[in-house]
């Protein structure tokens, strides 16, 4: 009985797929393999059964990966495939790990040492300390739970708004590997951004190069954008586009154009996808241009814009081999 329930529950695990620096080809192959098996990618760590980090993480990002891992509810599994060829066996391994009852129970008992648990605990310890101090109540209010409040800054209308610092990346699903975009937010509008690129520990060679590769990058970006817009069916179509199936490509292109006309997709994002897929290779985007691209946009638009420009970002191209190699 238990065995049958476990088999049924883990038949198609939901995998939270994160791209490590330089892991773009492994990540794309992971998505294609998930499509082949009919597994759903998870839209957030909280709804995921498994965490898959595509590519090799550099050491500075190990701690971030542990924080992310602590956000998965149990039973959970984790893997880091580093080569395109190892993706199918990795997915099999994830499912086997989810079905390993003894391992999952041991994992659950060890969660007292989770990154998140430790962080929250140390936070409340800070809070208690300030409580016992004979301090003024203003200090308490300025740092509830031991965390400071955001500083204020005038917004575009001259009204005082909170300037909240919120990181996008380094380890985010449907996000270019290695990109950490620390945004300063007024409400949900990005007013400033800082770009950091995390380098892969060793350069990864792209499995293929040339024109076909540019196009594959374009379709991959289109699939990411469609998935972010909640259209997983069209995203699967975009990922399945091969040079031999122009009519599928046409359908996806028409869908993207319609989304752009309706305003669901920012016009810049729609245009760059159209250029990449139909006409020619658009120009690469430097870090300054990326900051300019996302400034003044709301967070949802920022996700879409970055996803649409992902194959053209300087840091992505540097990390995964240039187009001319």
């Amino acid at each position: 009985m238990r065995g049958r329930v476990v088999t049924l529950a883990t038949a198609r695990p939901r995998v939270y797929v994160v791209e490590a620096p330089g892991g773009r080809y492994v990540r794309a192959e992971t998505h294609r393999e998930l499509d082949r098996r009919g597994w759903q990618p998870a839209p957030s760590p909280a709804s995921a059964d498994a965490l898959l980090i595509a590519g090799t993480l550099p050491d500075p990002l190990r701690a971030a990966a542990d924080v992310l891992w602590s956000q998965l509810p149990g039973p959970r599994a984790r893997a880091e495939p580093t080569a395109v060829s190892s993706v199918p066996s990795t997915l099999d391994g994830l499912r086997a790990c989810l079905r390993d009852r003894a391992g999952q129970l041991a994992d659950r008992r060890g969660r007292e040492l989770d990154e998140a648990t430790r962080w929250v605990r140390s936070d409340s310890a800070r809070h208690d300390e300030t409580d016992h101090d004979d301090m003024d109540h203003d200090d308490m209010e300025m740092a509830p739970g031991g965390l400071v409040l955001a500083q204020g800054a005038p917004d575009r209308d001259g009204l005082e708004m909170d300037a909240l610092r919120h990181p996008l990346g380094p380890l985010l699903d449907r996000w270019p590997g290695g990109l950490e975009l620390v945004t300063t937010l007024h409400g949900d509008v990005v007013v400033e951004a800082e770009v950091t690129w995390w380098e892969p520990p060793h350069p990864t060679a792209p499995p293929q190069t040339g024109r076909a590769d540019d196009l594959a990058g374009g379709w991959d970006a289109a699939a990411t954008v469609l998935s972010l817009l909640g259209d997983e069916r069209q995203a699967r179509l975009a990922r399945s586009v091969a040079p031999s199936s122009p009519e599928v490509g046409d359908r996806v292109l028409r869908r993207l154009d319609r989304l752009t006309r309706r305003g669901a997709l920012p016009r810049t994002a729609g245009e760059v996808l159209h250029t990449a897929l139909a006409d020619s290779v658009p120009a690469l985007i430097s870090d300054d241009e990326l900051v300019e691209l996302v400034s003044g946009r709301d967070l949802g638009d920022v996700r879409l814009l970055v996803a649409a420009h992902a194959p053209l970002l300087q840091g992505v191209v540097d990390a995964s081999g240039s187009l001319d190699d």
Binding site: R108, R109, D114, L147, L164, G187
Partner: peptide, 30 residues
């Protein structure tokens, strides 16, 4: 339940921990 202690969650921040408290003003446009 396997253990009594609940698993604690953080705000979604791509593997980073929060720098500021989420207690903040609503945008006046709301």
């Amino acid at each position: 339940a396997e253990t009594r202690s609940p698993v604690l969650v953080l705000p979604v921040a791509s593997g980073r921990v929060p720098e500021q408290h989420a207690l903040s003003r609503y945008h006046v446009r709301w």
